[in-house]
């Protein structure tokens, strides 16, 4: 009852929905910013403990491969969101699926690397490497779960048009955030010397 008579600007349901999106967007940005702080502290700890030193046994080819894969998945995520914004559900769903698949491949790549890496977790470089890639992989997996949920729900035109695209946008933003973290982690872990 009280909600129904919510103030006049809200009488227009679309305007109200856009206002919700604005609010949600700021909340998501703040959350991502906060989460980035956690990653930054781990990266800072890596430099504090061992400077830029890197273990020579790193599998560089694999590193470059999974990095490219994650970058490419950011593109498909972008394409998915753009498609949904323009009401192109079919392409949006295909792109979401492509993102999920590449995310899974990235996670598989990290798992493979863990299984074959030749440096122990107890060494300083191993400490940084396993904890940082592990935390990042955890975010990748949660991102995949979110993507899977919106993909499964997107069939019936649920997310088509204007403010209704928000759940897709939010998930895709989270995915881009995971990529941004890797943009910094990749040189930090693989390329410095």
């Amino acid at each position: 009852m009280a909600v129904a008579t919510h103030d006049n600007a809200h009488a227009d349901p679309t305007a109200h929905a856009w206002e919700r999106v604005r609010i949600n967007r700021l909340g998501l940005w703040l959350f991502l910013f906060s989460d980035a702080g956690l990653f930054a502290l781990f990266a800072a700890s890596r430099f504090y403990l061992s400077g830029t030193a890197r273990d020579p046994h790193l599998n560089q080819a694999l590193g470059l491969a999974i990095t490219s894969l994650l970058l490419l998945s950011s593109l498909t995520a972008y394409r998915a969101e753009t498609a949904f914004v323009h009401g192109n559900t079919a392409r949006g769903r295909a792109m979401l699926l492509a993102t999920i698949v590449m995310g899974l491949m990235f996670a598989g790549g990290v798992a493979f690397e863990w299984a074959t890496a030749e440096f122990p977790v107890a060494e300083l470089y191993g400490t940084a490497f396993y904890s940082m890639t592990g935390m990042h992989a955890f975010h990748v997996i949660t991102g995949i779960l979110f993507l899977a949920v919106v993909w499964a729900r997107s069939g019936d035109g649920h997310f088509s048009g204007g403010p209704k695209v928000w759940p897709i946008t939010a998930t895709v933003m989270y995915w881009h955030f995971v990529d941004v973290v890797w943009v910094f982690f990749y040189p930090t872990l693989y390329l410095l010397k």
Binding site: S34, L38, L41, L49, G126, Y130, M135
Partner: peptide, 25 residues
């Protein structure tokens, strides 16, 4: 609260990693 709390979380996670998976923070 939103900008600094990760510090405590990061420290505690590092202790946890040292305890559980044997890192050397």
């Amino acid at each position: 609260a939103f900008f600094f709390t990760q510090g405590f979380a990061a420290g505690l996670l590092m202790v946890l990693f040292d305890r559980v998976i044997g890192t050397s923070f």
